[in-house]
């Protein structure tokens, strides 16, 4: 019953890299329309967690289900990926293709859209991220902020129900961070379900319904942004917040 299910449901998720346990018994439920921000020190497993949601990292144990589709085999993984868009820290645009081709590749090859339909859709999303005039350039001709906005548009072209952002502004020059965050905030306001891994606490306050703090592969604390920023419960979280909010 996809309509009734939670957007994302994770139970007892474990992930190992050899002897190193990257995720420890993660339980997490995200509702439709909910905006979740995940933060924590590097190596805490936040990226691994969201990469497990669309199986870019294979889980070792536990249950993951996305929009009612349980992740059991490669078929269900394909089905889940078609519901989930992802934006990477390093943009990962296809450098040999133009911006427009970057956006139309998935819709044409995976969804079977005609070139004209795919291009119309691509232009619509390029408008949304405010760079329709760059459609015929190559990614390397764009600034980092523009590239990341193209990456967001590329994901949106697949019309996902859920968006995952893996440190979307960490590779950007400071003056380009806000143009990318603005686009993500727009999406959030339109009701897109999203999990955002980020250290941008201003963005978190503005856009998040729920904060999750992770450390050493486990979820240490979770709560509304107010609770989280004003009255963090755990010592570890207080320490982390004082470090990143110091400046």
């Amino acid at each position: 019953m996809p309509g009734d299910a939670h957007a994302i449901e994770i139970k007892g998720l474990n992930k190992w890299y050899g002897d190193y346990q990257a995720l420890k018994d993660i339980d997490l439920t995200v509702d439709h329309g909910e905006r979740v921000v995940v933060c924590g020190p590097s190596g805490s497993g936040k990226s691994t967690l969201i990469r497990c949601v669309n199986s870019l990292e294979a889980k070792d144990s536990g249950l993951i289900s996305v929009d009612g589709i349980e992740m059991v085999d490669s078929q269900s993984i394909d089905a889940i990926r078609s519901e989930v868009g992802m934006v990477f820290q390093q943009f990962n645009l296809f450098p040999h293709l133009t911006i427009l081709q970057n956006l139309t590749l998935g819709p044409m090859k995976a969804r079977g859209l005609s070139k004209a339909d795919a291009e119309a859709r691509a232009m619509q999303y390029l408008e949304r991220v405010r760079i329709p005039d760059q459609a015929h350039k190559k990614p390397s001709e764009l600034s980092g902020g523009q590239q990341q906005r193209v990456a967001i548009a590329r994901s949106l072209c697949m019309e996902p129900k859920i968006m995952l952002f893996d440190e979307p502004t960490s590779a950007l020059d400071p003056e380009m961070i806000s143009e990318v965050l603005d686009v993500i905030v727009d999406l959030a306001e339109e009701g897109m379900t999203m999990i955002v891994v980020t250290h941008e606490m201003g963005f978190a306050r503005k856009a998040a319904d729920r904060m999750i703090f992770m450390d050493h592969g486990a979820i240490v604390e979770t709560g509304t942004p107010e609770q989280f920023f004003e009255a963090p419960k755990s010592e570890r979280c207080k320490q982390f917040l004082s470090q990143i909010l110091q400046h």
Binding site: D78, V84, M86, Q90, N92, L93, F94, G106
Partner: peptide, 27 residues
């Protein structure tokens, strides 16, 4: 070719064959 290229291709729904043909091999 950067692993991120394959990952991005997966997230836009490309199969292994399509990823090779349209994303990895041309580069």
């Amino acid at each position: 070719i950067n692993k991120g290229q394959t990952e991005a291709a997966k997230t836009v729904g490309l199969t292994y064959g399509q990823t090779m043909r349209y994303v990895i091999l041309p580069q």
